[in-house]
Each structure stands twice: as C-alpha cells, then as structure tokens.
Amino acid sequence: MWAAYCDELEHGKDTQQPFYCATPEEAKGSHRVFKAALESNRAGQTIPINWRD
C-alpha cells in the first residue's frame, strides 16, 4: 500500500500500476457502509445510509 501511495505521489495518474489509491471521498463512503453494517447487526434491522453528508 505504501508503495502504491509513493508511486502515485511521484508519477500522478501515470503510475506503473493498474489501480489508484483510494480518495478521501471513497474512504468516507466505505466507512459509512461498514458503520451501517455494524449498526444493522447490533440492532437486527436495516440501517439507512445518509450519502448527503
């Protein structure tokens, strides 16, 4: 992961790898999904995800 990060810092989007590092927005979205999954398991019901924040 560090190598991919350093490669992207050095070369921008012209990296030597086929994938890019996650953006802060993607990390935030992933966090919301996992948080809702944990709450859903704890509550035993579906938890809506607020995507507008």
Score class of each variant (00 low, 15 high):
residue 1 M to R: 03
residue 1 M to F: 05
residue 2 W to N: 12
residue 3 A to D: 13
residue 3 A to M: 13
residue 4 A to R: 13
residue 5 Y to A: 15
residue 5 Y to Q: 13
residue 5 Y to L: 15
residue 5 Y to P: 02
residue 7 D to S: 06
residue 8 E to A: 04
residue 8 E to W: 07
residue 8 E to L: 01
residue 8 E to H: 09
residue 9 L to M: 08
residue 9 L to E: 07
residue 10 E to S: 06
residue 11 H to K: 13
residue 11 H to A: 11
residue 11 H to N: 15
residue 11 H to Q: 12
residue 12 G to Q: 02
residue 12 G to A: 03
residue 12 G to D: 07
residue 12 G to I: 00
residue 12 G to C: 01
residue 13 K to F: 02
residue 13 K to E: 01
residue 13 K to H: 02
residue 14 D to N: 09
residue 14 D to W: 01
residue 14 D to P: 00
residue 15 T to M: 13
residue 15 T to Q: 13
residue 16 Q to M: 00
residue 16 Q to R: 02
residue 18 P to E: 05
residue 18 P to Y: 02
residue 18 P to D: 05
residue 19 F to V: 10
residue 19 F to K: 11
residue 20 Y to R: 10
residue 20 Y to C: 09
residue 21 C to L: 15
residue 21 C to G: 14
residue 21 C to F: 15
residue 22 A to P: 15
residue 22 A to C: 15
residue 23 T to Y: 02
residue 25 E to V: 04
residue 25 E to N: 05
residue 26 E to N: 05
residue 26 E to G: 02
residue 27 A to H: 07
residue 27 A to S: 13
residue 27 A to R: 13
residue 28 K to D: 12
residue 28 K to N: 07
residue 28 K to E: 10
residue 28 K to F: 07
residue 30 S to R: 10
residue 30 S to C: 06
residue 30 S to D: 11
residue 32 R to N: 07
residue 32 R to C: 08
residue 33 V to D: 11
residue 33 V to T: 12
residue 33 V to M: 10
residue 33 V to W: 10
residue 34 F to K: 05
residue 34 F to T: 08
residue 35 K to E: 14
residue 35 K to N: 13
residue 36 A to V: 04
residue 36 A to N: 04
residue 36 A to R: 04
residue 38 L to S: 14
residue 38 L to A: 14
residue 38 L to R: 14
residue 39 E to H: 03
residue 39 E to W: 01
residue 39 E to G: 00
residue 40 S to R: 00
residue 40 S to G: 00
residue 40 S to I: 00
residue 40 S to D: 00
residue 41 N to Q: 05
residue 41 N to E: 06
residue 42 R to P: 01
residue 42 R to T: 12
residue 43 A to K: 11
residue 43 A to T: 10
residue 44 G to D: 06
residue 45 Q to R: 15
residue 45 Q to S: 11
residue 46 T to N: 06
residue 46 T to V: 06
residue 46 T to A: 10
residue 47 I to V: 15
residue 47 I to N: 06
residue 48 P to L: 07
residue 48 P to F: 05
residue 48 P to D: 10
residue 49 I to M: 06
residue 49 I to G: 07
residue 50 N to V: 08
residue 50 N to Q: 06
residue 51 W to L: 12
residue 51 W to Q: 09
residue 51 W to M: 09
residue 51 W to K: 14
residue 52 R to T: 08
residue 52 R to L: 08
residue 53 D to H: 12
residue 53 D to E: 13
residue 53 D to R: 12
